[in-house]
């Protein structure tokens, strides 16, 4: 059974048809061919598919595409301002937090949402924000550095 989804994705109005069983991740990747959001566990356990949905980070793999009707969504493709990277994107590159880069889009979305909530996150805030984002490459040290660097730059401390 297919029906039409009207949503605002990365500040653009999008209208496309989808099946009832389609996940939001499949809608983004396969229907809209926006491949930036990554598929991994497909069960809501790894965070690779994290997007910002009506202002909150969620796992798009366990969300119905149908729920996107009327929603406002930001994906990794919509975070930078033209050629100017978002502070979190820049910090991930600058600190060496991007190894294979596969968890990176989801990670960046979680961190961008965190820094929207909290200008100077504590270790506890960081754990809460990204415990659902698994990185298999870095052992997390450089990612923590990236989060602090981005926070400092956003609030003018660096």
């Amino acid at each position: 059974m297919s029906f039409t989804i009207n949503a605002t994705i990365n500040d653009k109005k999008v209208s496309a048809s989808t099946e009832a069983s389609t996940s939001l991740l499949e809608f983004l990747r396969d229907t809209l061919e926006m491949k930036g959001t990554k598929l991994c566990c497909n069960t809501g356990e790894c965070g690779a598919c994290t997007i910002i949905f009506n202002g909150k980070p969620i796992n798009s793999c366990v969300t119905l595409a149908a729920d996107a009707d009327g929603a406002t969504i930001t994906t990794i493709e919509g975070l930078a301002d033209g050629a100017n990277l978002h502070a979190v994107q820049q910090a991930f590159i600058d600190t060496g937090a991007v190894q294979c880069g596969y968890c990176t889009p989801g990670y960046i979305m979680s961190v961008a949402a965190l820094l929207d909530r909290t200008a100077k996150p504590t270790a506890e805030d960081i754990e809460e924000a990204v415990s659902g984002n698994i990185c298999r490459c870095t052992g997390y040290a450089k990612i923590v550095d990236a989060i602090h660097l981005a926070a400092d730059r956003l609030s003018g401390r660096a």
Binding site: G44, P57, I58, N59, T63, S110, G132
Partner: peptide
């Protein structure tokens, strides 16, 4: 309860 992403949904 699970991750923040899951708690949001």
């Amino acid at each position: 309860f699970a991750s923040l992403q899951i708690r949001n949904t």
